[in-house]
C-alpha cells in the first residue's frame, strides 16, 4: 500500500510543504525545421494557394463582368425571366437554368444505377483479365471527347431512342413530365420530330459521359472494403449480395455520394454535347420528352459569337449563375460526405 502511494507521489505534483513553491511552467519547445521539410512546405502550399487564387479570380472576374447586366434588369427579373434578348433589355436565366438542372437530373437518374451496377460488377464479380479490361474500357469512356458523344448522340442515339421516348410518352404521358404537347398516340404516322432534340435525349448523352467518372470513384471505394469484414459476413452464411449489402455498400457510401456529386457537377457544366443535340428554346419546359430544351452552357456557346459589351455581360451573368450552382452542389456534397458515417472513416 505504501509502495503504491510513493509511486503516486512521484508521478503527481507533490502537495506537501517540503516540496517548496511550485515554479514549474510549460517550457517553450522550438522545433528547427529540416530543409527538406521547408522545401516541401513551400512547394505544396504554393500549389494550394495558386488553386485557391485561380478559383477566386474566376469568381471575381465573372462577378465584375456580370454586374452591368444584372444591374440593368435587376436581380429578381434576371432570375425569373425566361426569354433571353439582352438587345431589348429583357433577359433572365429562369429557362436556361431550369433546363440545365433538368438535363443533369435525367443524366443522374440514368447514370446512377448504371455506374453502381458497373462498379459492383467490376469489384465483386469480374475477375482477373476481364476485370482489368473492364476497368480500362470504363476509363477509356472518360477519354472520349464530349463533342464525339454529342455527334454520336445526334446522329445515332437520337434516331434509335425516339421509339422509346414515344412509348414512354404514350403510356406514361399522364405523368406531367412525360407528356408531349401535340402528340397524338392514335395517329398512325406520328411526327417523330416532336420527340427529338429533347431534354431526355440530351440527358441520356450526358449520362454516358458521367458514367465513367462515377464508376471509377465508386469502384475505388468499393474495392477498399476490408477483406476482414467481407470474410466476417461470409462466415455468417451470407450470400454475395448479402455481403455486398452489409459490408461493401455501407463502406463505399462516401464514394457513391462523392461520385454522384462529381457526375452532377460535370453534367451541370456540360456544353458541347448538349449544344449539338437540343433545339434551344427560351421557355421553361418540364416535358422532358418533348422537343426543345436549353442549358446555361449551351446558351453561352450559342450566343458568344455575336456578343459584345452589354450582351457579353449578360452571358457572364449566366455563367456566374452556373458557377454558383456548381459550387453549391460541391459544397453540399462535401458536407454530406463529411457527415455520413462511412465505414472508411471508422477503420482509420
Amino acid at each position: 500500500m505504501t509502495a503504491i502511494s510513493e509511486t503516486a507521489d512521484v508521478t503527481t505534483r507533490p502537495d506537501y510543504p517540503e516540496a517548496g513553491a511550485d515554479t514549474a511552467s510549460p517550457r517553450l519547445i522550438k522545433q528547427v525545421r529540416e530543409r527538406a521539410d521547408r522545401t516541401f512546405r513551400l512547394v505544396s502550399s504554393t500549389g494550394g494557394v495558386i488553386v485557391l487564387a485561380i478559383m477566386c479570380l474566376v469568381g471575381i472576374f465573372l462577378t465584375v463582368n456580370a454586374v452591368q447586366a444584372i444591374a440593368a434588369v435587376g436581380p429578381v427579373e434576371f432570375l425569373t425571366t425566361q426569354e433571353w434578348s439582352p438587345e431589348t433589355n429583357h433577359f433572365g436565366i429562369a429557362a436556361v437554368l431550369t433546363g440545365t438542372v433538368l438535363i443533369a437530373l435525367v443524366a443522374l437518374v440514368v447514370a446512377l444505377p448504371l455506374s453502381l451496377g458497373t462498379s459492383l460488377f467490376i469489384t465483386e464479380v469480374a475477375r482477373g483479365g476481364f476485370q482489368r479490361t473492364l476497368v480500362s474500357i470504363v476509363d477509356l469512356m472518360a477519354a472520349v471527347p464530349s463533342v464525339v458523344y454529342g455527334l454520336w448522340g445526334l446522329a445515332f442515339l437520337q434516331n434509335n431512342v425516339i421509339g422509346f421516348a414515344k412509348w414512354l410518352s404514350t403510356w406514361f404521358g399522364w405523368i406531367p413530365i412525360f407528356a408531349v404537347d401535340g402528340a397524338d398516340p392514335a395517329n398512325p404516322l406520328p411526327n417523330n420530330a416532336l420527340y427529338g432534340s429533347s431534354t431526355f435525349i440530351a440527358g441520356l448523352v450526358v449520362a454516358l459521359m458521367i458514367v465513367p467518372i462515377m464508376t471509377s470513384m465508386m469502384r475505388e471505394s468499393f474495392s477498399r472494403a476490408p477483406i476482414g469484414e467481407r470474410e466476417g459476413a461470409y462466415a455468417l452464411g451470407a450470400t454475395r449480395w448479402g455481403m455486398i449489402r452489409s459490408v461493401v455498400l455501407p463502406f463505399g457510401k462516401g464514394g457513391v455520394i462523392g461520385g454522384t456529386m462529381l457526375g452532377l457537377g460535370r453534367a451541370l457544366g456540360e456544353t458541347i454535347a448538349i449544344y449539338l443535340i437540343i433545339s434551344p428554346i427560351f421557355a421553361i419546359n418540364f416535358h422532358i420528352l418533348q422537343k426543345g430544351s436549353n442549358s446555361v452552357a449551351a446558351l453561352i456557346a450559342l450566343r458568344y459569337g455575336e456578343s459584345n459589351g452589354f450582351t457579353m455581360s449578360a452571358l457572364m451573368a449566366a455563367g456566374l449563375a452556373l458557377f454558383i450552382l456548381t459550387m453549391i452542389v460541391n459544397f453540399t456534397a462535401s458536407t454530406i460526405i463529411g457527415r455520413s458515417r462511412s465505414g472508411a472513416e471508422s477503420e482509420a
Binding site: P226, G228, E229, E231, G232, A233, Y234, A235, L236, G237, A238, T239, S246, V247, P250, F251, R341, S342, G343, S346, E347
Partner: peptide, 21 residues
C-alpha cells in the same frame, strides 16, 4: 455454401465487426 458456413461459424484473428452497424 451458405448453410455450411452458417452451421460452422468462424471467429477471426483480427476482430471484424461491421463498424458502422
Amino acid at each position: 455454401i451458405t448453410s455450411a458456413r452458417r452451421n460452422i461459424g468462424m471467429v477471426f484473428q483480427k476482430a471484424n465487426p461491421f463498424p458502422a452497424m
